[in-house]
Design a protein around this nucleic acid. Sequence first.
DNA 1: CAGTTATTAGTATCAGGTGCTAAACGGAGG
DNA 2: CCTCCGTTTAGCACCTGATACTAATAACTG
Lengths: 186, 186
Amino acid sequence: MKKQRQDRLLKLLEQNPLVTDEELAGILKSSVSTIRLDRAVLAIPELRERMRRMAQKASSRLRSLKEEEIVGDLLELEPNRWALSALQTRKDMAFRHTDALCDHYVYAQASSIAIAVVEADFVMIDSMRGQYKQRPRIGDVLLARAKVGIHKEDKYIVSVRTRVGEKEIFVGRFIAAVIHSGGSSE
Amino acid sequence: MKKQRQDRLLKLLEQNPLVTDEELAGILKSSVSTIRLDRAVLAIPELRERMRRMAQKASSRLRSLKEEEIVGDLLELEPNRWALSALQTRKDMAFRHTDALCDHYVYAQASSIAIAVVEADFVMIDSMRGQYKQRPRIGDVLLARAKVGIHKEDKYIVSVRTRVGEKEIFVGRFIAAVIHSGGSSE
DNA sequence: CAGTTATTAGTATCAGGTGCTAAACGGAGG
DNA sequence: CCTCCGTTTAGCACCTGATACTAATAACTG
């Protein structure tokens, strides 16, 4: 049947966009013409166009994947006082194949903002404790707010609360340490 | 001069690998033939090959980011008792441009193994506390060992210790909850 | 059975190349 | 001056993974 084939086509290309029409024809046991026709109907661009787009995305976005998307966008920051960050969750952050978010993304956002809120070049987390309240769903935008509490010498206590709308997701407390680069590292 | 042109060629392609020979010829004010010759000498692959590589890197990295590389490989597992996982750290896991590992990778591995060690389909972290001991370096292989402690009903206490060789990196304690899929999710 | 839709084959064409050959340029040495 | 040699360029045949189009065939539907 036509629809089944087109569904399979979509799934195949989602899994691996770098397949030629010929290969697809082989997998779906139909002719190259049919594949092309299906692609035209489904508005799927040709292999080269798909490659081009991925490559472009890669060059522009892979760089930012490091310290933006995983970690959230810093919305507001008042150093050594408080900060606010937003994390748009995506389907690839899901726990297995559910629509529940992996807890380590919540943690990553929280820990990152805890580090960001402390005004120093090199800050690392010493220890933490936290509690997950309600489970965020894929697609939710996580808003994390960090507040700096008391600090002694180079240790700062930072509280982080993460919400989705009115829903409380995570509450945690981090001890962030300022590392003075006297010794190693660049 | 020949060398200057080839240097410029390399720089141009580093900045933007998605340029055709024709465009390069225009920029460098020489013929397409010359560009091809230079590329051959410098062992620079053609546009399509460059695109293909970037796209592959993008897709392989995006896919593996999910539940393999971030989270480590499960080496041994005795359900509801203990488990061992290894995480090979890469330069893109670094904190800014240093050779220190971001703490959330350590956390992700620890939390993942804590979830994996509990024998149930759907397990999530309820709360955690932990302490980072020494800082791992990029390239280190993190070995995380999880031990299941006491459990009441659906809550399991899981201790995780992460090491690099003899060096202790992280010690933590997670409370993992088994979620009975009565209600939502697949 | 005809009529319609779905599938396939086949041809010409395109972009962005490779690989090869041949020609033109351009400066140094005899 | 010409000759030699490295450099640059032009031209052509060919490749892949497509597009666009036509025509033929297969498969159902009433």
